[in-house]
Structure formats: structure tokens, C-alpha cells
Design a protein around this nucleic acid. Sequence first.
DNA 1: TGATATTGATAAGTAATGTCTATCAATAGA
DNA 2: TCTATTGATAGACATTACTTATCAATATCA
Lengths: 303, 303
Amino acid sequence: MSINRIAFYHIETLLWIARLGTFGAAAERLKTTQPAISARVRELEHHLGTSLFRREGRTMTLTPAGRQLVRESEPLMAGFQSLLHSAGDTAETAGIVRIGAGEIAAASCLPGFVAELQRTWPNLSLEIEIALTADLIQQILTGRTDLVFGAGRIAHPALRTTSIGAVDLLLLASPTTIGAIEAQGNATNFPIWSLSSHSPLYHIMKQAIAASGITSRSVNLCNNARMMIDIVAAGGGIGIFPHSMVRQALEDGALALVPGAMDIPPVEFQVAIRAGETDPLILHIFERAGQLDIRAMSTPLAS
Amino acid sequence: MSINRIAFYHIETLLWIARLGTFGAAAERLKTTQPAISARVRELEHHLGTSLFRREGRTMTLTPAGRQLVRESEPLMAGFQSLLHSAGDTAETAGIVRIGAGEIAAASCLPGFVAELQRTWPNLSLEIEIALTADLIQQILTGRTDLVFGAGRIAHPALRTTSIGAVDLLLLASPTTIGAIEAQGNATNFPIWSLSSHSPLYHIMKQAIAASGITSRSVNLCNNARMMIDIVAAGGGIGIFPHSMVRQALEDGALALVPGAMDIPPVEFQVAIRAGETDPLILHIFERAGQLDIRAMSTPLAS
DNA sequence: TGATATTGATAAGTAATGTCTATCAATAGA
DNA sequence: TCTATTGATAGACATTACTTATCAATATCA
């Protein structure tokens, strides 16, 4: 006896019989015939191995097992009906979209962007993964994420990208570190902080340090940009940061430009989806993301 | 497109594909073939009007809609599976049984009896209706209740009954009322309290009053025996009560026997089910109820 | 680059399922 | 006793679901 052969119309039939009192009334409501209703009940009782109705003269009443089945099926049935209707409902787009973002892009763009998406599609669910751009590219290529915000230029034949602007990168340190640099006359031998070696910013940092003639006894890595900002603001050394993430710290005087550092070219941020993407919802979201300008978005410094 | 044609095996198929990653693996798990799985998915997508999977080379991944359906189906499916299995599971009897009882029988028997039933059948649910015996007989005859505790002898060809003992009935009043009766030398013209005229106790009360030569300027009715006890204990008059309900009040001195009142024959209590009852659970419960002795059960006087 | 393996889709045939109409059985009401 | 109501069953038919065989697309390996 296979319970899995039970369909939602069996449960619906049971619930309508219970509500209306007779097989004939349920048949009318479900636009079928009384023998069809009788057969459905027999089939359901057969699947379950228990009797659901008892005939008393002309009336059918539920058995205790039948009553419990009715009582507990109703919320489950309502849940499935709501779910199945929303799955097929194009007026109210629903689903789960996975977005990957580097931390900088995430901090800069995602809060506002997510809010915009959820205003547009209230039933949309998101799964967001913060990781390094290189890892995210791998994830999108293997179908483990749907849309990626990444730093640097993303070029892959299987990906379709669009730029969302460039972010100025700044070499920054705390006022105390800057005082020491000024006293020494140069930035030599101060600790350097950067994101991990897989990040595009790591390479940019290396180029900037080399161009500025700064030598360092240590290059320190961290995989969390916010933590790194805290470390540098506490006098831990020199760090390279996107302007968008440190606007507030600069205004507060917690960080300042390292004197003598040469300008760093801005880093471009891009959004990527698969070139062969066909899902209309993901295509819409990609279009929305392409309209973002990463420079325009404020980045609150969360503690 | 009818969502109701979707069966639980469709949902199960979707969940297994999502877990195992390929149609072939799901086919193996579900003991069917890969084309059958492919057809099930196509059917489900057709019913829902949306795509659930996207083919990327050799791998299939869920669309956002598919992912949401998987996520939200799992708890609903688990709920249905648990429910349907318990419906057919004879080792763990479940269901909802309706018990009707007069207030006296309810107060005397039900707390202990209900506890016993729930120890025996943890998954049993009860719906208890407190009403007058006459109404309960009507309910059981029309299939609106399953088992009835009633006062007096229940005789109906369509009912099968068993006695659960007899309860002494006592004419009682408060000490102040009794003092006044003794001062007057008889109980004439004191208010009489009884359950409503449809109750067997009403008729017994009338006979008892007549046999005792007590005339009364008023016979007062109440449909709540506990309230009536409170009224009489507060000096409201004379009432007739089953011993089982007033044991505590007698011990506390809140009530006492009316002097000069003749003994009232005890009233029998019975349990009844339909003569044609076939449900094994109800038959079991009826057998258990038949073993009760209403005199043996203490009745806490709840305030 | 070609051969092979893997995965899902499709076709055709067959078995199983579900519903219809017609009719019967049991019960209640007039 | 007759009629009406309700559910069960039978037979015919339409629909559904699955099997095997095969094809198409893609990835891997030599």
C-alpha cells in the first residue's frame, strides 16, 4: 500500500465530504459524480489501511481516524495550495536567488540593492554568500550561485558581465601611524594590511606599494575588510581600502591618507551572470544590478 | 492545469532529485526508471506552469522557483507523511473520540477516566461535551457524539449501555438553612434547587420532595451543578445532590443533610454507545468505561 | 580529434488508474 | 407500501504512468 500514490485531490475530496456532509454534495462541489467520490474514498482508505467513514442509515460520519485526518490535513493542505499557487503565479514572482559578492561589493551595494529587490519582488528570497571574487567566479561557473558582484575585471567566455562603476582605492592609516610616518619622513617598514592573496585588491596593493617606493617588513592579510579597517584604525599599520567603505572613518578622522603615497587607479566592480542564463527573474535582477553605481552608495561603518 | 492532480510522489520525486543531484540517482532511490522521473518532473512543471530545473551541460540545477518549492515542500511533506502513517498505524491508535457526559458524571468520572485513556492511547484526542443526558442521547443517536455518560437508566433500542454504579442522592442545605428549618420545625417553604427539568435528577427531586411532605414556594433550576452547590452552600435553599459531588463539602461542614428528609433511592449512571458501533477504538473505550464505578471516584470541589 | 561515457528527452507499447452511466442495496420519510 | 435519498458496484471507456529502446547534448579520456 503506497501512501505516495495519494494525490491532493484525495485530500480535497475528504475535506469537502467532511464540510458538506454527503458524497453527493462533495461530488457537486468538485464537479464530478457520486460514484467517483465513492471510489476516491475507497482508494484513500485502501492506501491508508484504515476506515475513514461509517455509514449510519442514510448518513455518513467520520470515524475517529477520519476526524483526525480531516483536522490535521487542513493546515497542511492549505500550506501546499499556497505554495503550489505561488510557484506558478507570475504576478507575484517568488523563488530563491543566490547572490555572491566580495565583501567590498557586499558592503557597498547589497544593503540598498537587497532592499530594492525586496520592494520589487516581495516574495523573492535571497541566499547571499560573501567570498573572494575568484571563488565566486568558480561558483557561478559550476551553477552554485546565480549572480556575482566582483572586484576587478571579470572576463570569462561563459560569463556575461556589466560594470557598476569604479571605486577609488586609498592608502590609509590611523593618525598615530601617520604621525610616526611623518616623524620618520617616509612609510618604510610599517606593517601593510591587505585582503588575502586571491583578492584583486591584493595585487593592486602590491602595485601601489611598489609604485610608491614603500618597502615593508610585513604584509599582513585578512579576509574580512571591516576587521581590517578596525585594525588599521587602531594603529596596526597601513591598509588599502575602497573609498566607499571608509567614507565615515575619514570624516571622523579615524583614518587618513598616508603622506607621500601615489594615487592608485580605481578598481572596477562588475556584476556577472552565466552567459547562458535563461531564468527571467535572474535576467531581471542582473539588469537591475547593472544600473547600480558603486560610488554613489554610502557605506555605514558598522562596529 | 489542475494542481490537485499532483500527488505526493511528485513532491517526493522533486525532493529526491534535489538531494541526490541527478534524475538517474533519484530513479534508483525511488525504484523506478530515469524516463519515469523525467516524465514526473515534466508533469509537475506542467501543472505548476513554471520551470523547476535548468539543464547546464550534464548537470541539472534548480531554478529559483524550484529551489523555493523544495525548501517549502519539505516541512509540509514531512507533516503529511507523519499524518498519513499514523492514520494507518494500528500500533499507535490515534483519532478523535467524542464523549458526552452529564455534569455529574463528568465531574465524578471524567478526570480519572480521561487520564487513563490518555495513558493507554497517547495519540488519542477527545472532544468532550457537557450537556444534559436527554440531549446527549439525541446526539449519539444522530451520530454527533460517540460515547455518553448519562444519569438514570438509558433505554433505547439503538443504544448499547452498561451501568457504572449508582450514586446516593442527598437533600442538603447549608448550616444556616438547617438552623432555620429546625427552628421552624419543618422544611416547608424553603427554596428548592434542582437541575433543569430535562434532567433525570429533576424528576427524582420532585419525587423526593413529595415523599418527604416538603412543600416549597419555589423550585429553582440551574444547569450547572457546581454553581448550584455554591448557591445552596451560601444559604440559598435546599438542593439535591449526588454524594460523589459533595463529599468534600460535607466533610467541611459547608453542607449538611436536611433533617426529616426521607432517604432517596440512588440514581444509576450508565455509559452508552450506539448498538451498531463497529469502530474498534470506541468499542475498547466503551469496555474501559464499563469497568468504572462512579461511587469509587472522588470528586474534588473546585472553586 | 575521435571515441566513449554520462545525463536527460522522446517514442511506442502496455498496464494501471479514474470516471462515466446505469443500476442495485439499504434506509428514511410520507 | 411507495417514494426519495444516499452510497456501492459493474461495465465501458478515456486518461495516466511506466517500461524498454533509442536519440541528443555534453563532458571526459586517450
